[in-house]
Amino acid sequence: MARLSSAILAALLLAAACFGAPALASQLAGTLQRAQDERRLTPEEAAGIVTEINEARELGLPRQPFEAKVEEGLAKRVPGPAIIQALEIMRGDYAFARDVLARGGTGPSPDDIAQTGESLRLGLTRQQLTEMAALEPPAPPAMLAIAARTRAGLNAVGFPPSLSDGILCTGLSAGLLTPGWEQLFRMVQRTRASGVPDAAVAAAAARVMAEGGGPGELLQELGLTGRDTRQAPGRSN
C-alpha cells in the first residue's frame, strides 16, 4: 500500500510539474488538427502557422500570446493566410518592443514584452514607444510597458498627442506610473461626457502624478467616482 501510494504521489507531482509547456503545445497541435479536419486550414497553412510560432520562439519571444492569437483566429473563422500574416506582424512588434525595453540595460520579462508588443497593435506607434524609452533616467521595463499601454489607450480615444506626451513624461520621470493609469483613457471618456476639456484632464493628471497620487486621486480631483465611470446598467461591467 505504501509503495503504491508513493508511486501515485510521484506521478501526480510529475504531472503537475510537466503540465505547463508540453500541455500548451499539445493544445495548439490539437486545435490545428481539428481545424484541418474541419477543412478550415490546409496542411500548408497549418505548417505555416507552426513555422511562425517557432520563429517567434527562436527569437526568444513569449510563446503563449502567439498561440492565443492562433486560437483567436481559428475561433473567429479567420482564413489561414490572414492568421499567418497576423503572426508575422506580431512577431515584428514583439521583437521591436523587446529591443526597446532592453535599451535601459535591464532585461524585460515575457509579460513586459507581450504588453508592450500588444500596445503597438492597440494604437501605440513605434516612434512614440522609442521616445518614451529615450527619456532620462531610463524607466524600468515594467513601467515602460505600463506607459505603452496607457499611451495606446489614449491614442485609441483620440486624446491629443501633446497632452499625452506631457502626462507620460511626468509619470515616467517621477517613476510613479502604476498599472491603474492604463485605464486613463476611460476617465477621459467620462470627463468628455461631462464636458470637461482634455487639457484640464491632462493638467490634473500631471499634478496628481507629480504629487505621488494615483488614478483614485485623479478621480477625486476631477470630481468623479467609480460609479460615475461605470458603464450603463445591463451592459458588460
Binding site: 492569437k69 483567436e72 483566429g73 473567429k76 479567420v78 490572414a82 492568421i83 497576423a86 506582424i89 506580431m90 497593435r121 492597440l122 494604437g123 489607450g153 485609441a156 480615444v157 485605464q183 483613457f185 476611460r186 476617465m187 471618456q189 488614478p215 467609480g226 460609479r227 465611470t229 461605470r230 458603464q231 450603463a232 451592459r235 458588460s236 461591467n237
Partner: peptide, 28 residues
C-alpha cells in the same frame, strides 16, 4: 456596442475591451 473600447484584432476586424477593476468589481 457598449464596450469601453473596440480595438484592432490584428485580423482586420475589431475586439471589444472590458476593463475590470480591483476590489468591488466595478469597471472603470
Amino acid at each position: 456596442a457598449a464596450a469601453a473600447l473596440n480595438v484592432d484584432d490584428g485580423f482586420g476586424s475589431r475586439n471589444s475591451v472590458l476593463l475590470v477593476k480591483n476590489g468591488d468589481g466595478t469597471a472603470l
